[in-house]
């Protein structure tokens, strides 16, 4: 299976060409953001100066980062966190920043799927728990924001990723692998009960 190469800038056309089930490798700058960041943005909070999230990608991740010196960081482990927790916030944030991608694990719900379709955004599923394989694809940590306010795992880490392996599980056409598997597994379970 040869993955599709997706490189920044993440244009709407590139995103709309992707379909559920596509294996993709992403290259470019992305920002980590999880519970505290999503709540903050959803409540109308601003991003610190320097972050260019518009038409960018957010990565649901709380990495283990060691600080080697001023503005020198080493990512020790960096897999995705469960995205479903951001469901109350994600659709608004996708629209506000015209996000092109959300990277996470476990998939998201109906409101996010609608926002993806409207805005031209896709949900990219990374392998949960694969903190080493994924940390290896982080070429550089460029900056960190909100570290003092939210703590290290909840901070916004600005990172450069290269050939970061993911699968499209929710596309910009309203299709969701998570919904499909949920429906089929429920139907099968009814048969085995």
């Amino acid at each position: 299976m040869n993955p599709i190469q997706l490189e920044a800038p993440f244009s709407e056309d590139k995103i709309r060409s992707l379909r559920v089930g596509d294996a993709v490798e992403i290259t470019g700058v992305v920002y980590t953001g999880r519970d505290a960041v999503h709540k903050h943005l959803h409540e109308g909070g601003d991003l610190p100066p320097g972050i260019r999230l518009t038409e960018g990608m957010i990565y649901h991740c709380g990495p283990v980062v060691l600080t080697d010196g001023p503005s020198q960081w080493r990512v020790v482990a960096a897999g995705p966190t469960t995205s479903a927790r951001e469901e109350p916030y994600q659709a608004d944030i996708i629209r506000r920043f015209r996000l092109r991608g959300v990277i996470g694990k476990g998939g998201m719900g109906a409101r996010t799927l609608v926002a993806c379709k409207e805005t031209g955004c896709a949900y990219f599923h990374a392998v949960g728990g694969a903190a080493q394989v994924l940390a290896e694809r982080i070429r550089k940590v460029r900056n960190v924001y909100f570290e003092r306010e939210f703590g290290s795992p909840e901070a916004i880490w600005e990172i450069e990723i290269e050939r970061f392996p993911v699968v499209v599980t929710m596309d910009a056409h309203g299709d969701s692998l998570h919904q499909r598997v949920l429906d089929s597994s429920k139907a099968l379970l009814a048969k085995y009960l």
Partner: peptide, 23 residues
Amino acid sequence: SAMEIIERNIQMARHRSQPICQD
């Protein structure tokens, strides 16, 4: 491919003596 990434991740974590998962 998810299982292959998982398997490789286990090897890498052991080899590097770093967390298997960041959580």
